[in-house]
Design a binder for these strands. Structure first.
Lengths: 341, 341
DNA sequence: CTGAAAGCGCTTACAG
DNA sequence: CTGAAAGCGCTTACAG
């Protein structure tokens, strides 16, 4: 039932080698033969068997996508689904398919092995957030091309695509300053999560530039979950910040809830800036001012870089750092500012 | 560098056929040979090449997962990420891998073809929500085993795993009745989405059983998005319902927001029941009473059914309908009830 | 520009 | 219980 190269060759009146050549865009085929073969392929809707192609050529046009789930399921944050979506769409555009591994600790070792040595994957994308990730190490030991979503400051060989978290955080703080806030707190990420570290650096740098004192009691650590955002804000309240920069929109919204529950209002008492610009941000009450991550560009960037790496094995580390953008809504009282200007 | 069966055979002192047999659990291998081979495999951490295995045996141990994204990105609802997670975990347990296709309309035709005829997939799971889905039709025409997440009343051949949406909706309405509500509205799904149709049937059946009149102005259609939940509630307000059963938690939370924004309180003025029991439900203000879908069981059910189908080709339609559960929190005023009892 | 042939790394009758 | 051999459907030097 299923067609093979041989069938197409017979019908087009040529050899299997020639059909293979036109499929793979080899230049050594006469124009007339090429047209004839292409016509047959299209009419019969022929699809080459990828297992056979992979075995013969070593290229499957399949990319692995590994998302370590860690302890807290990061999947409750819409950022990951959107990232998967953007990677999936970029793959389709480049005519690649994707195999997905949600690496829970329990299956991690077995999975890694499967992934690296099953000969089915041309390269892999790892959305690893933490320093010293064992997955990255295993990947590095294999010869498989891979690129990480998110940089790792301790790693000078892994190729990555990242977002400018440092400057994103700076922008947030500078904006809060411009809005008249002076006791600016932050709900930071865990210290082993790189985006959190970078955003905290940006926070501190901005305070220094603006001549604001750095007060450790205004920095509370979280794990990016809604609950920890809520709890962080509760802790912060006693230190009376007039603004909070949260490391994610999910936590920013949780912080707003914590403030409301404690009888404070946003932005009058406390201004809030989030990070990500997920759909939730525009719909919160009040709508959230936030730092947008260009998720579509991350997906496209990482897929293109990986395919490039597969086609032209890299000698040096490659990287792409995408800009963030301040999206002004009303959680910092923009309206008040406009009126006073 | 990468090991092959031949390498293992040489080291273990037997033929490649024998190694293949122990890997595949063939009984025709002596105990001593089996042990010797297994030892070598373990020590060298040998992983058979899946492309070669797929080509030779026709079985790749790879399952396709297709999620049609449709017009509205269903990915903003945490239900899908959780479903992916549960399917992924069930696959790992059964030692299968998964290829993911997020089928946007633009790539749909090409993808379908790729998926069906690339010879790389043993079977597919489709999380299709709509009637007359062209993907299901293409799948049915191919000989590839597949199972759907969600039943299709017009289709008596496709195997599926579903949740008891009909009785879930009934439970919701009966509970609202028990809480003293009599003007019970519903934020329904689109008419071409099956879960919506089933829940609407359950809603109507419950009204009939309880002797409540069916009032079409208390039924508003939505598309499962936050926005449409909000808009639906706004429309409903003029008909003065004292309770609303929303087709998803996302919409239930949006409805609460719409009520608050219009000056009503929940549950005093209007009681709300959602559907899904995503994490958001427990954290809304007030915490949401909802109908829980057993997402983990859906994932395990669909994966096990598909693998079973691959191993024992089915003659008849198979189905699995999982029970839903009423999770009582405070959006219907449970506390009031407790106090009055 | 084209075809015959070898080979990718497995599985699986077949023969013993 | 075990091995030699054919075959899965492709790609890719090689020869012409």
């Amino acid at each position: 039932m299923t067609l093979t190269l041989e069938d197409i060759a017979r019908i087009a009146g040529c050899s299997r080698s020639t059909v293979s050549r036109v499929i793979n865009g080899d230049v050594n085929v006469s124009v007339s033969t090429r047209q004839r073969v292409k016509k047959v392929i299209t009419e019969l809707n022929f699809q080459p068997n990828l297992a056979a192609r992979g075995l013969a050529s070593g290229q499957t046009h399949i990319l692995g996508l590994i998302i370590p789930l860690g302890v807290v399921s990061l999947f409750t944050d819409p950022f990951y689904p959107q990232l998967i979506q953007s990677i999936s769409s970029a793959c389709s555009q480049r005519d690649y398919s994707i195999m997905l591994w949600l690496a829970t600790p329990e299956f991690e070792r077995r999975m890694i092995h499967q992934i690296l040595f099953n000969g089915l994957i041309d390269g892999v994308i790892v959305a690893s957030m933490s320093l010293n990730d064992s997955i990255i190490q295993s990947l590095a030991e294999s010869k498989l091309p891979f690129v990480a979503v998110g940089r790792n400051p301790n790693d000078e060989t892994t190729c990555y695509v990242d977002v400018d978290n440092y400057n994103g955080a700076r922008m947030a703080i500078e904006y809060l300053y411009k809005m008249g806030r002076r006791r600016i707190a932050t709900i930071a990420g865990p210290s082993d999560v790189i985006v959190g570290v970078d955003r905290l650096r940006g926070y501190k740098a901005a305070l220094a530039e603006l001549g604001l004192p750095y007060d450790p009691s205004l920095v509370v650590t979280s794990d990016f979950s809604d609950e920890s955002g809520y709890a962080a804000m509760q802790k912060l309240i006693e230190y009376k910040p007039d603004a909070v920069f949260a490391n994610s929109d999910v936590m920013a919204v949780a912080a707003i809830r914590a403030l409301h529950d404690a009888g404070f209002s946003v932005p009058e008492d406390v201004a809030i800036v989030g990070f990500d610009d997920i759909t939730l941000a525009a719909r919160s009450t009040p709508p959230l001012t936030t730092i947008r991550q260009p998720i579509d560009l991350i997906g496209a960037g990482v897929v293109n870089m990986l395919i490039d790496l597969i086609e032209h094995p890299a000698t040096a580390q490659r990287s792409l750092v995408l800009p963030t953008e301040l999206i002004i809504r009303s959680s910092c009282g923009e309206d008040l500012l406009k009126n006073s200007e």
